[in-house]
Simulated scan of single mutants.
Amino acid sequence: MGAPVRVVLVDDHEMILAGLQAMLAGFAGRVRVVGQAGNAADATRLVTMLRPDVVLLDVRLGPESGLDLCRALTGTVPEARVVFLSVYDDEQYVFEALRAGAGGYLLKRVDGPELVRRLEEVAQGETVVDPTLAGRMAVTAARLTRGEFWPGANRGLTQRESEVLSLLVGGLSNKAIAARLVLSEETVKSHLRALYRKLEVADRSAAIAVALREGLFR
């Protein structure tokens, strides 16, 4: 057997970090947790210093974006592969994660043996996706291949971000968008931050202007 996969854990919930530590402790010969962080700044410092094989990262880090952190880490420490461990089972998050440079996307219901196996695969250069998401991803990928794009897909918007932008153009407030899409206001704000970045704008009025100018919504 080779050396254990060296892993840094990143999650803004201490209970999740403790649970992962306990889960992986039983596989010490295959995986070794070398550090943990609860925010993007600490994670960047740790990963830069420790140079782990894998960073196990949540999509959301409180008000911060795990996707943004992934982009930063893959740019500065490319040898440390990022695997997302998330509660979000929407295939759009998977596509976003892979576009951000991640080597994998798993759901938090994964058990210990499966998690260890996936971490080993990623450390060996493979890309892994939770099996429960694979089928839905294939359907979405087929739609994209056939050219069935949603508005804004050519700018990198996920389907959910496109829906949020559509409601933004329709004049709805964050609270109204959240109610319409059955999301929390914080989740809506997260989608807005992401679509602002992709459209290269700073606020909702500029995002609406881009959407109208490019004919995304009429």
Rank of each mutant, 00 (worst) to 15 (best):
G170V: 07
W150C: 05
P151Y: 06
L168D: 01
A142M: 07
E163H: 13
T132E: 15
L165G: 10
G152N: 02
A176G: 00
L165A: 06
T127C: 08
A178L: 07
N154Y: 12
R136C: 05
L119G: 12
L144D: 02
T140D: 00
R160T: 15
R160D: 11
R136D: 13
E148T: 13
L165M: 03
V129G: 10
P151L: 08
T127W: 02
A134V: 12
E163Y: 00
L181R: 06
E148L: 10
R146G: 00
V128C: 03
V164H: 01
D130L: 01
P131K: 04
G147A: 11
L172W: 02
G125N: 04
R117K: 10
Q159Y: 13
R143V: 03
V169L: 08
V182C: 01
A142Q: 11
A138E: 15
R146D: 13
L172C: 03
V182R: 14
R143G: 06
V164S: 03
L133H: 06
S166I: 04
N154T: 15
R180L: 02
E161M: 13
D130V: 01
P151W: 08
L167F: 13
N154C: 08
G147Y: 14
S166N: 13
T132H: 09
L157N: 05
V116F: 04
L165K: 02
V128D: 00
A123M: 09
G170D: 15
S166M: 14
G170C: 07
R136V: 12
L119H: 08
S166T: 02
V182N: 10
Q159I: 09
L168S: 08
E148C: 06
E163D: 12
R146M: 14
Q159M: 14
L157E: 00
E120N: 12
P151A: 13
V129F: 09
A142N: 05
T132V: 14
G152K: 05
A153H: 12
D130G: 01
G135T: 15
Q159K: 11
R117G: 15
G135M: 12
Q124W: 02
G125H: 10
A134I: 03
A123G: 13
A134S: 09
E121L: 15
L183V: 10
A179Q: 14
G135C: 04
A142V: 07
V182Y: 01
S173Q: 13
T127R: 06
